[in-house]
């Protein structure tokens, strides 16, 4: 149940993000939508590795094979990669927005610019 709730809240953030991308014309707002969508997907990824009562996946001496009740660490590793990629893309997108502003003197997608 917790996993489903976790996954659904992540996916609802994705929906909010997609709504923003589709309805806004301001580039900064579109990028905010993109970032919301990305955060939602990241939460969804983490949710897929989670289950109720799972422990932090660090092996110590007090654990034996039968008491190891770990959450799956691999989605966490994937999310770290995805966060870094998201940071890079957002930084690049903001730079492009700055360029766009210098050329067009506004930051909105209008029908006249390709």
């Amino acid at each position: 149940m917790e996993t489903i709730l976790f996954a659904l809240s992540g996916l609802s953030l994705v929906m909010v993000g997609i709504f923003g991308i589709l309805t806004k014309k301001n580039i900064i707002k579109i990028l905010l939508g993109l970032n919301l969508m990305e955060t939602g997907i990241n939460l969804f990824v983490v949710a897929m590795g989670f289950f109720k009562g799972g422990k932090t996946p660090i092996i110590t001496e007090s654990f034996t094979a039968s008491t190891m009740h770990f959450v799956d660490p691999l989605p966490h590793a994937l999310v770290l990669t995805s966060i870094v990629i998201g940071l890079g893309t957002t930084a690049l997108a903001l730079t492009l927005t700055l360029n766009y502003f210098r050329e067009h003197k506004h930051i909105e997608f209008r029908g006249d610019n390709a």
Partner: peptide
């Protein structure tokens, strides 16, 4: 920048 942003 416009084309690149749309692609991005």
């Amino acid at each position: 920048s416009a084309g690149s942003l749309r692609y991005l």
